[in-house]
Structure formats: C-alpha cells, structure tokens
Write a protein that binds this DNA or RNA. Structure first.
Length: 500
RNA sequence: GGCGCCGUCGCCAAGUGGUAAGGCAGAGGUCUGCAAAACCUCCAUCGCCGGUUCAAAUCCGGCCGGCGCCUCCA
C-alpha cells in the first residue's frame, strides 16, 4: 500500500503526490498568543508532528512551518486587561507554547514565523490583490472582495450569498459584501500599528498565513493543516486570497484534525471548567501519556479528554514500559538507546528465522498499512500492542531471561525489538527513558535498594516470609515495587502517574 | 435554516462488501511461598427500519440520537 491522505477539499482520501519530487512543504496554523496553551491546543502539533515523522520515514524531505500570530484584536484586549504590552504578552505566551511543544516531543517544526516579522510581505500581497481587482481600500481598511473570487467557498462548501441570507455576518458599511473580509485594519491610537498606503494599521486575521506560507514553502505547497474549526472562514479565506494572488493552486491537501473535548464538552474560554492548561497537565502526566491520548483515535475524529481517560491510557502504556525493562534484562542494553532504521525498507523474514519472526514482520506491515491509510494512528497503536505481546510470548517460550538461552532465538528477538523501536519512533513515543532508569543510575539509591533486596533474599531462603513481605510492603510504600523472578528479584519505581 | 461529521463490547477504539484488531475494566487459569510481571482462556453481530447483493458493521434510502461550523476559536 502507499500513502493516502484525506483531503477536505475533495472530501476523499487521495493518493499522496508531492508538488516537488521528494520534498514536502507543510503549513499548520499555529496559535494566536494571547493565553497559555490548553490541552486542545496541542492536538494539531502532536498529530502533524507524527505526520512529519511518517513522511520523513517514507523518505520525503519535509519542511514544516507553524506560524505565531502575535498581533490581533484578542492580544490587544488581553494585554490591556493585564496592564502589559502586546509584545510582552506575546513573548510570554509564545514561551509557554514552545515549552509545551518541547515537552510533548514536537520537535519537527522547521520554521516558526511571527506575523509581526512579515508586515512587508503582507503589505506587498495586499497591494497586489488591490491591483488585480480582488481587494479594495475602504476608509483605512482593506477588504477582500469575495464576489471576485470564482470559486469562493469551495473548501467549506459555502455560497457567499447564503452568508448574506443568514445575516450572521456583522454588516459593515465599509464592506461591499457581508462576506468580504479584512486584509488590513486601521488602528486606533495606542494600538500596535504599521505604516501602510492606507494609513496606520495592522494585518487582518487571514493574510499572515498566506504571506508566510508562501514565503517559506512557495506559492503551491503540499499540506495545509489545522483544526476543523478553521475550515471556515480562516482557511476558506486563505485559499481565496492566495489563489487570487498567485493564480495557482495554494495547497494540494487540506488536513483538518478533530477537536478535543473535555468530558464531552467543548473546550471554551467562556466555560472555565473546560480549560485545562497544558503546563498543569504536564506536571501530572508523562509526555507519552498525553501524546498517546492524541494518537489514540483517528486524527479527524473528535477526542475526549478526562482524567480517567488519561489514567486508562497510562495503564495501557505500562505494558510497553515493563517490556522495555525486560528487554534491558535480556539484552543488557536500553531500549531507548536502540537506533532503528530511519527510512522505510522492506523487511522479509529470512528462511532460517524462527516462525514467530514472520509474525513480527506481519505486525510491522499492519502498522505501516494503517499509517499509509490517512495516518491511522489508532490502528497502528493496536498493532504495537500485539507486537509487544508477541515479543513477551517469545521471551517466555524461548526462555530468553535464562543463561542457557538459544543465541539464534536471541538474535531474532533482538531484531524484533529493533522493529518495535522503529515503529514507536514513528509515533514519537518512548523517546526518553523512564524514571526507574534514572534512579538506577543513582549509585546511592540504587545500591540501597539492591542491599535490601539481598537481605530479603537471605530471609526468604530461611523461609521467613513474614519479614520478606514486610520489606516488600515497606518498599512499596516508598514507591519501589519488587518482583521475584527465577533469575532473581528486580525492582522498579511505582508509577506515580496513576493514583490508586 | 445551510454545510459537514459521527453513532462498533461497561469505557476507549480499529475495521468501510466476505463473515467483528487492540487497549482499559471484569471472570477464570499458568507461574509464584504469597505477590508482582508476563502469558493463556472467556467476554459484542456493529443506533433503528427497509433496500441492493450469493454475501453488509461496511453500499443506498428513511428514521432516531449526538456533535461541529455558519461569529473569535487548535
């Protein structure tokens, strides 16, 4: 199978064809930086980060652009409310956004242009649109004339005249048509402003995305993404102004992620109970848990967030974490240190490989097929679970933790684990070692735990199980879990993420 | 009212014409001094009603229910 992508423009899954051979340009609408990121804001970044990882894995050279909108009405209002400047507010909120991205492993963004750094490009574009007759100046403002655009509404399937009938659009005497939207807004005294042929003002909401995406990705690029709520009017307007400007197709594929709800309710500023700050969540949960939340269902479907949901996901992830510890016992090497192939290649089970190796290859195929099918991360995650179970079964049946294990089986198992690493890396999961490994590296703490384990082994030998159990219970209270195995006792830190 | 999305086990969720992945929770079992971890077994006919077809959760029609956008929004 090869990659197919759902395109909002055509409402179908289409085979992926890049504009320029071997390269992909991807633009995703970023935040308007007037308030800290909440859970919902990270949906797009994590999803498109995964999209980029997968495209890169397929061999494309991907350039990913995410804008920062740092001038806007909401910023002006919020800055005034806080008694600060727009600039200070924007910088502070941007810093929070960047921290969230980094914590979640969203590290594939290549360019993060700020609107205020591109006023020149924006003005050039507006002037061109006026010259071409697509826009008009009106009392200090400049508007895009939707009636001049032959296929306005093609993305959101809307008829400009219907908008008028709906009468939902604020009639403005400055506009020729109610559906016309601002490219440039005149400013009042005290507001951030730039000089323009139409007087002091600032860019309208949609124009910066057109100007910046074209600057960094060209007039026609591959993927334009964002939340579904941006389809209209934002993306519709972007298409209209961009294509009017360039006379070319703007983006080949329009990808829209479903929104996140909080216990079934829409996350909205007007309902404070629904707003959960990402920075707060990151204190309670492992980044992988949050990442897995976004990837647990298909990106186009809405996802519901709730504390119990995160606990559930965290429990599901434990299987992997426990397996990584097991792998370390077997291979005496950390799963996190494995370097898997960075590019997709065909893997066929060698004739002399054990029968179960073919099953591993099967699951890899299933994973890749799912990803090829419009980035079906939910299905891919399912394959991962099956892969781990298979690997555990192999470790059991081949007795890989014992000293007389079969070397050939071990080698094949090792290759299987490398495949697991390869696949988890595509999803951006398990990038950093667990807490347990860190404590294990701490000589004192690790040694003390080992000491207690050794003492406990002595009393166990003497059949003093009461004392042995006391040691285990007390350690458990301290957050250390003991597991007795034929090869000896192992320990790990008890997950503090889930409250039991 | 217009445009669009969705309804699969208690919960989450894949599957979009060939007879229901996976996870969480639950029950039983193997292993264990007991646990833990791991593994094994069990646990759904797909909102309702019609239709098309040899065959439908998957296609078509209708109905019921939930949601998004149409106004700022990831």
């Amino acid at each position: 199978m090869s990659l197919r992508v759902y395109n909002t423009l055509t409402q179908t899954k289409e085979p992926f064809r890049e504009v320029a051979s071997g390269r992909v340009g991807m633009y995703v609408c970023g935040p308007t930086v007037y308030s800290k990121s909440h859970v919902g804001h990270m949906t797009g970044p994590v999803i498109f980060d995964t999209v980029k990882r997968y495209l890169t894995y397929l061999g494309y050279r991907v350039t990913w652009v995410v804008n920062i909108t740092d001038v806007d009405d909401k910023l002006i209002v919020q800055a005034a409310a806080e008694g600060t400047t727009v600039k200070e507010l924007a910088e502070r909120v941007t810093a929070d956004y960047l921290e969230c991205l980094s914590a979640l492993g969203v590290d594939g963004i290549d360019v993060m242009p700020r609107a205020t750094d591109h006023i020149g490009e924006i003005l050039t574009m507006i002037q061109s649109l006026i010259q071409k007759g697509f826009a008009y100046a009106s009392d200090g403002d400049v508007y895009f004339d939707v009636t001049k655009s032959k296929d306005y509404g093609k993305l959101s399937r809307r008829d400009p005249d219907e908008l008028q009938a709906g009468a939902r659009v604020e009639p403005s005497s400055k506009k020729h048509h109610p559906g016309d939207f601002a490219l440039w807004k005149s400013s009042k005294p005290g507001e951030p402003a730039w000089e323009s042929p139409w007087g002091a003002g600032r860019p309208g909401w949609h124009i910066e995305c057109s100007a910046m995406s074209m600057k960094y990705l060209g007039e026609h690029f591959d993927i334009h993404g964002g939340g579904v709520d941006l389809v209209f009017p934002h993306h519709e307007n972007e298409i209209a102004q961009s294509e009017a400007f360039s006379d070319r197709t703007f983006a080949s594929y329009w990808m829209h992620n479903g929104l996140l709800t909080k216990e079934g309710k829409k996350i909205s500023k007007s309902d404070p109970g629904t707003v959960v700050l990402m920075s707060d969540l990151l204190k309670l949960h492992r980044a992988d848990t949050l990442r897995a939340l976004y990837l647990s269902s298909h990106y186009r479907r809405p996802t519901d967030y709730g504390p119990s949901r995160l606990d559930e996901i965290s429990r599901g992830l434990q299987t992997f974490l426990h397996f990584f510890e097991r792998y370390e016992r077997i291979a005496r090497r950390s799963f996190y240190d494995l370097t898997p192939p960075a590019r997709r290649e065909e893997i066929v089970a060698p004739a002399d490989a054990p029968g179960w190796f073919a099953s591993i290859v099967e699951h890899r195929r299933g994973f890749l097929d799912a990803m090829d099918d419009d980035f079906n991360t939910g299905g891919a995650l399912g394959e991962l679970h099956e892969l781990v179970r298979l690997l555990n079964r192999v470790a059991d049946s081949e007795r890989l933790e014992s000293t007389d294990r079969d070397q050939q089986a071990l080698a094949a198992f090792d290759r299987g684990v490398l495949i697991l690493r390869e696949l988890t890396a595509i999803l951006g999961l398990f990038r950093k070692p667990s807490q347990t490994s860190k404590v294990r590296d701490d000589r004192l703490a690790g040694s003390l735990i080992e000491l207690l384990i050794n003492l406990r082994a002595r009393v166990r030998k003497e059949k003093n199980f009461a004392l042995a159990d006391t040691i285990r219970d007390e350690l458990s209270k301290l957050g250390v879990a003991l597991e007795d195995r034929p090869e000896g006792t192992t320990w790990r830190l008890i997950d503090t993420e889930i409250e039991r």
